[in-house]
Design a protein around this nucleic acid. Structure first.
Lengths: 353, 353
DNA sequence: ATAATCCCTGCACACGTGTACATCAGCCTT
DNA sequence: AAGGCTGATGTACACGTGTGCAGGGATTAT
């Protein structure tokens, strides 16, 4: 209500009877300015309620101090930890975040990137997104520093910087845990819209079976059919979808006669638990269930969920730091973080039947 | 990798042998430009991979086409729906979102607002935040159009635009549902860090008791002690914290002898369910539990959770539209949305004991 | 044929900031 | 006393875009 046009350094210059470069220098603590003038101008700036115009600064510096964040879905509970981690690093470095959701739709991804380019972001974080090679090449072509966070792209990427959690290791950990409890018929429930994670977790699961000398039965691996074409957007993603998958696939698992199941993530496990409850199958009495991610409520389910903990906040921290280092021209290293197993109530020793 | 400096309209002008204003007009489809030149320049712009510089446009227009989003915690599962709703409206209107988290800390809130002001955002959305009068006055003083979304401020606010869900109504709905099931000893588990919602839900709960002619017992209302001073940040907020509250307070509820409990939100209910499980109390056999929000997994818990559905996405839609209307100078109306009751398995008729 | 009109384009400037360069006063040195 | 030096400030310009205004060429009207 007070001022329609914000005060600029020219306004301050006029009030102080100096030129605007002098004000600029004074506010930036340039050694060229005499102490007296500097102090007087800084006080004046405060009194006149001055705030620098970041648009002008960005234009002049051709650096906006801005980062674009592209993610599939804002609703994924695991992912909110990653965002928090990113924000905790970006904020103290005086970088602001542009938020955009792309819903795994290549067209929306492209549009999001185009918008970020128009905004002249200094860098981009692509999180949990399934990148088409077209988009990768476009990003590389633009030359915008980009860091991939747990990206879902398998192939050799044109984008060389990334931070991931080792999914093979995580699935292996979980499967070995079940084996140590005496289980040998172990199933896996996957998803179809996060190909890399799903493939690697499948791989870790199979590797553990193999190491134990168990032949893997195709019936032990279940995932929804590949929906080849367009997905109805609201239905085909997000936590509710994952839970639905778990619920639907769990009955197949029980038919296949497994005594333990590894789920793609905690929401799938929630659906699986739900299925067991509906069928009167006790967990972990009759079947053990393991999740993945360790989202906040995993410990509060009944039974509380044994799961593979992904260090989400740490992932966000590292990704943001990596990007900032990249922007400063510092040498950077990609990171592979290790997941850890969190043992809770949903897994137990195999009951002799 | 390709171009260090993005192409500007001046570059295009040079290539086309015209002046940059001509290019500007041609790209903006100004009727002043002849059809031939316009087409030639537009083609040239596409070939030269031109993207307008939003910083320069914002500087020139003194409108950045940018909205600042201030929220307490990115991790709140209910809130992610609101953000999604906001994004779905802002994106097609070509507004970009600045994300900032303030963790209910007045200093961080002030810093976030200051940053948004530096960025010259056109408007601000404050979501689920507990505003101090100091911050309200500051926002009003700045004259940045602001819309409050489910804000936690009780007093008459200096900020006149808001969108809320009627919490009194929601709690009343839930309580009446329990009453219709025959319950008369009904408890309420609240929280201490969202004062307005908590107060209004308490109010709705008490109003329903009152309407049924039931004297409310103070023992039936439980919430964590007011943590007067600084909260250890990581512990005092977020879904995990809420679940912890529910688990801790639920045992008091059982001691108080209630047969049904209304919880502040679904995460509190998750904690309450957990407590019952640990104590061997069956839900809904011995006690009925109602949540609030209808977060994605509420339907997948065991038992699935009866809860009050908040239209999160709609809330986001309305808030964003309201802000955009405000920016266009159109007349605006505040909105009070009505919650709805979703009946599931966690509530049942009172068992004669 | 001349003037009025219209259509298109260029020029100048503004948004707000920051920096290379010029300027100028004052002081020191020889 | 004259020239060089240091220190503080002003001048000019750049970042990229958009718009008011002037102007020029072509067409039309008288």
């Amino acid at each position: 209500m007070s001022q329609r046009r914000p005060t600029s350094i020219s306004d301050i210059a006029r009030a102080a009877g100096v030129s605007h470069p002098t004000v600029s220098r004074a506010l930036n603590d340039s050694p060229l300015i005499s102490a007296g003038v500097r102090q007087r101008i800084q006080r004046l700036a405060k009194n006149m309620d001055y705030t620098p115009n970041a648009l002008a600064q960005g234009l002049r510096a051709t650096r906006s101090h801005t980062i674009g964040l592209v993610m599939t879905s804002i609703a994924d509970p695991y992912f909110s930890d990653v965002v928090r981690g990113i924000e905790e690093v970006a904020r103290p470095a005086h970088f602001s975040l542009f938020l955009s959701a792309a819903h795994n739709d290549p067209a929306q991804q492209m549009a999001a990137i185009e918008t970020l380019r128009r905004r002249r972001v200094d860098g981009v974080l692509m999180a949990s997104t399934q990148l088409s090679t077209q988009i990768e090449e476009y990003l590389a072509h633009l030359g915008i520093p980009t860091v991939l966070v747990n990206n879902e792209t398998d192939s050799e990427s044109a984008l060389t910087n990334w931070v991931v959690v080792d999914d093979i290791e995580g699935a292996r950990l979980a499967t070995e845990h079940l084996q140590q409890l005496g289980h040998n018929k172990i199933g896996y429930i996957g998803v179809n819209n996060r190909p890399r994670s799903n493939r690697q977790r499948t791989e870790g699961y199979l590797a553990a079976l193999d190491a134990a000398g168990v032949a893997s039965d195709p019936c032990w691996v279940a995932m929804p059919a590949q929906s080849g074409s367009v997905l109805s957007e609201a239905e085909a993603e997000g936590p509710t979808h994952d839970a639905r998958v778990g619920r639907a696939q769990m009955s197949r698992m029980l038919d296949a006669g497994v005594s333990a199941v590894l789920c793609f993530n905690d929401m799938v496990a929630v659906g699986a638990l739900r299925c067991c409850h509906e069928l009167g199958v006790s967990v972990p009495g009759q079947v053990s269930i393991v999740g993945y991610d360790d989202i906040g409520l995993a410990g509060y389910l009944t039974p509380s969920l044994t799961t593979v903990r992904q260090p989400g906040a740490e992932l966000g921290h590292l990704a943001a730091r990596l990007l900032l280092d990249l922007l400063e021209g510092r040498p950077v290293l990609n990171h592979v973080l290790s997941p850890t197993l969190v043992k809770r109530e949903s897994t137990a020793a195999l009951q002799p039947s």
